[in-house]
Design a protein around this nucleic acid. Structure first.
Length: 575
RNA sequence: CGGGGAGUGGCGUAGUGGCUAACGCACGUGCUUUGGGAGCACGAGAUCGUGGGUUCGAGUCCCACCUCCCCGACCA
């Protein structure tokens, strides 16, 4: 490809609104352009990287026997009503009406369509197991997109679905996908950690997220240095220390002016924060007021809270008015004397005697509050965040807290969607059985961004060879003075084009100064930079620079021709 | 949706009530230049986010709205 004809432009200045390196570099180097919040166009270079990433994902899906297909982006809303998600999911689900006034949906994912197809296609156990997948655009009207391609509203996802007879089959499919993911991310040049995760809106029984560690990541991960524990904080559970046994003391109201935070309260009373209980207030999608009680030195984990009370529509923080309407005083709140609220108590608080808690009166708290005696919980559950340094449940070493970006996930769905669509198969026993499903997602664009996050330097992008849009970047210098430069460049360019798509090179044939061309070559990030100039020809051929290391050497024209045809390096085969 | 910030040629910015809206980059033409973001000359390119208002006069002040970015609640 001749750069003079490539649909792109580079920017000398960093775009003002790009903060993450991947966003900044992909915009500056002319790979992507933004259309709106969380909506991006892929320019030709970006499209080629995207296609390379897709191809790697495709090869690893095919390797485990998954079959590629394609399902629509626009769905009749009926199928989402049938699964219950039309009602359960909020405004992030794109909805519109067609010309006949029928409710329609922009797909966020494709479990419903798969469930419906299974009911149609699968009749017998003889057809199972199977896996299908597709690359398709998803629309998720996120409350907030961010980080360039890291979190967008419209994106292409590889979503795969496993189709099994039973749990044992699902387990095999699940771990097949796990293996495929490990190989995929390795080939993409991404260091990932598989962490246990929440099943979220998908429903189901077991899930892992593949995470790339990145300080700008949106998920908090708890990791053990030995690698024997890795979990998303949303679901991480570690044993809690047993509170010291004490007999319950009489409830005592104390004046605690101006102590609306646990820190000020504990300091005022001269007790540890672990001897206090704090209340947090939320409202569920179906309008229930939740009063969550955790120890003062802990924080509420909203995912666990949602799961503890089965809040399908999610939760939001309660307003001051809502809290007061239940007879509680923000800043001095507790369930004591409250009414019309679901009291959810952390299991540690339930076991902890004689805590300080709010008196529901401005400026007052109670000492010696005991669960069961002074108020009655509706739900007792683990609803706290695991904190950094908590003991690893496997080996007891202190856990490390890191931020991660989710580049892929795998879910054991079970029969949620096949039940919804009556997808059953006739077993060997002559009976109908529900088909058991799993679902497996990888966000393509997010992976592109994460690759840049991991593979760049202060000059620009440094693509791993397998995903680079072109095999090499040819820079011709001084062609006006020396006709041979142009001849050699023409020949190399044509030779590479004939060698096939994966061998094609980008030739900067523009009439630009050497500085501009070399700087752009580094910004664009092809793994090899070939420089042809009167100087290089005088030295015996072509200067070959490895982008990642900066190592350069002069090779004869014949050597470079051989490289173009045979590849600069053989991609490491992944077993 | 809450909090913070920003909308001025393609990009980055200056301009905080007063003349024809300025600068750098990028872009076009010509000449020079050609191994690390070249030089000179000429040139094209802006409804200053939108609508209303205040004023003799608004990019600048006021109101409303829209959009984008960042921080929080959600997810590939």
């Amino acid at each position: 490809m001749r750069l003079s004809h490539l649909f792109f432009t580079t920017l000398r200045d960093d775009p003002a609104e790009a903060e993450m390196p991947s966003h900044r570099l992909l915009v500056r180097a002319g790979y992507v352009r933004q259309l709106g919040a969380g909506i991006y166009s892929l320019l030709p270079l970006g499209k080629r990287v995207n296609d390379r990433v897709e191809q790697i994902i495709r090869e690893e899906q095919d390797r485990i026997g998954a079959q590629e297909m394609e399902m629509p982006v626009v769905h009749p809303a009926d199928i989402w009503k049938a699964s219950g998600r039309y009602q359960a999911i909020g405004p992030e689900l794109g909805r519109f009406k067609d010309r006949n006034g029928r409710d329609m949906v922009l797909a966020m994912t494709h479990e419903e369509v798969v469930g419906l197809l299974l009911a149609d296609v699968v009749k017998s156990y003889r057809q199972l197991p199977m896996q299908v997948y597709h690359f398709q655009t998803k629309w998720r009207d996120e409350p907030r997109s961010r980080g360039g391609l890291i979190r967008v509203r419209e994106f292409v996802m590889k979503d795969a679905y496993s189709i099994d007879r039973d749990e044992a089959g699902l387990d095999r499919s699940y771990w097949d996908q796990h293996g495929a993911y490990v190989r995929t991310f390795e080939r993409l040049g991404l260091d990932t950690i598989a962490v246990s995760s929440d099943v979220g809106m998908m429903g189901g029984s077991l899930a892992h997220e593949f995470m790339v560690l990145n300080p700008a990541g949106e998920d908090d991960l708890l990791l053990c240095e030995t690698g024997d524990y890795a979990a998303n904080r949303q679901i991480a559970v570690v044993p809690k220390p047993e509170p010291t046994a004490e007999s319950a003391l009489p409830l005592e109201e104390v004046e605690t002016p101006g102590t609306t935070t646990i820190a000020t309260l504990a300091a005022f009373l001269g007790v540890g924060q672990d001897r206090t209980a704090k209340a947090a207030f939320f409202v569920t999608g179906d309008g229930r007021l939740l009063t969550a009680i955790v120890r003062g030195d802990h924080e509420v984990n909203e995912t666990k809270l949602v799961n503890a009370v089965g809040a399908t529509g999610g939760i939001r923080p309660a307003t001051v008015e809502e809290i007061k309407a239940a007879g509680m005083e923000p800043g001095y709140g507790s369930p004591i004397g409250a009414r019309g609220t679901v009291v959810v108590v952390d299991d540690l608080v339930e076991r902890s005697p004689n805590l300080v808690a709010g008196a529901n009166r401005e400026g007052f708290h109670y000492r010696n509050v005991n669960v069961g005696r002074d108020y009655t919980p509706d739900v007792v559950a683990d609803i706290t965040n695991v904190q950094e340094g908590a003991p690893c449940p496997q080996c007891g070493r202190p856990l490390i807290l890191r931020q991660g970006i989710e580049v892929g996930n795998i879910f054991k769905l079970g029969t949620k969607y096949t039940d919804a669509f009556g997808a059953t198969y006739l077993g060997e026993d002559g009976q109908q059985h529900p088909i058991v499903m799993g679902s497996y997602g990888i966000g393509v664009g997010r992976n592109v961004a994460c690759i840049v996050e991991e593979h760049h330097d202060d000059k620009g992008i440094v693509w791993p060879a397998e995903v680079a849009p072109y095999a090499a970047h040819l820079v011709s210098i001084g062609a006006a003075r020396e006709p041979r430069v142009q001849e050699v460049a023409e020949r190399l360019h044509a030779l590479a084009a004939e060698a096939g798509d994966r061998r094609e090179i980008l030739w900067d044939d523009r009439d630009e100064s050497p500085g501009v061309k070399l700087t752009d070559a580094e910004l664009l990030g092809m793994p090899w930079i070939l420089t042809v100039s009167p100087r290089s020809l005088g030295a015996g051929g072509i200067e070959v620079t490895e982008r990642a290391t900066g190592e350069r050497s002069t090779r004869s024209i014949e050597e470079v021709e051989a490289m173009l045809v045979n590849g600069f390096e053989v991609p490491t085969p992944v077993v």
